[in-house]
Amino acid sequence: MTENAIIELRKVGKWYNSYHALRDVSLKIGKGEKVVVCGPSGSGKSTMIRCINRLEAHQTGHIIVDGTELTDDVKSVETIRRKVGMVFQNFNLFPHLTVLQNLTLAPIWVRGMAKSEIEEIAMMYLRRVRIPDQAQKFPGQLSGGQQQRVAIARALCMKPEIMLFDEPTSALDPEMVKEVLDVMTELAGEGMTMVCVTHEMGFARQVADSVVFMAEGSIIESGTPAEFFENPKSERTRQFLGQILEH
């Protein structure tokens, strides 16, 4: 992969008590690269991307994001979280705030932006995810697909350099998956660095620069979508693809 990696994982290891969740995971992601991470449940794919913004702490190895190494030091965590936006499976919007307040809260408090300035920016992002008319509603009043698009807009308002997606469409009704994937595809087209845990193989084929396959806490193989889907190297990958593409 690219020489100038914006995200670099070097032999990262993590345990939950005695459970070995990540085993020597090494990965380099270049600026502007789109990486899709897939694998069976329990393979450590979510754990891995949650380590990138320190929602989970790794125990061995190194994680370097845009030149800053993630350590126990609060400063390094703060620096990295400002550069990394995240979208969750369950949206995790703040239910007591309106859509617009959800978007403006962090820029106001973390970046110290003026309310009027960020509200304008927030409305711009809401237009881009195609729900400007919902700005004054509460998240509970929106559909799942709309909520996830608000969540994407919320992360974008922090002007991140990297976006992490943790199964963004897994909690959605089938008819809403497309509207979220469309927004993500558009974002990819603008050159955002994206790491996306997903089972949407169509999205992976269309958008990803590389696909990473994980199982039992290790990266089994990675490659371009063409290589990965047409000519998987390991038996484990073939088995996985066989199961997921059958359906």
């Binding site: 929602l55 979280r81 969750f88 995790n92 703040f94 007591h96 809260l105 962090a106």
Partner: peptide, 24 residues
């Protein structure tokens, strides 16, 4: 998930507590 979303947005402990957790 509320704590995680607040963390991921870079809110500090007291911001998270005051703006997200306590109001709910």
């Amino acid at each position: 998930g509320q704590y995680e979303a607040a963390d991921a947005l870079g809110l500090s402990y007291w911001q998270k507590t005051r703006l997200i957790v306590l109001p709910q």
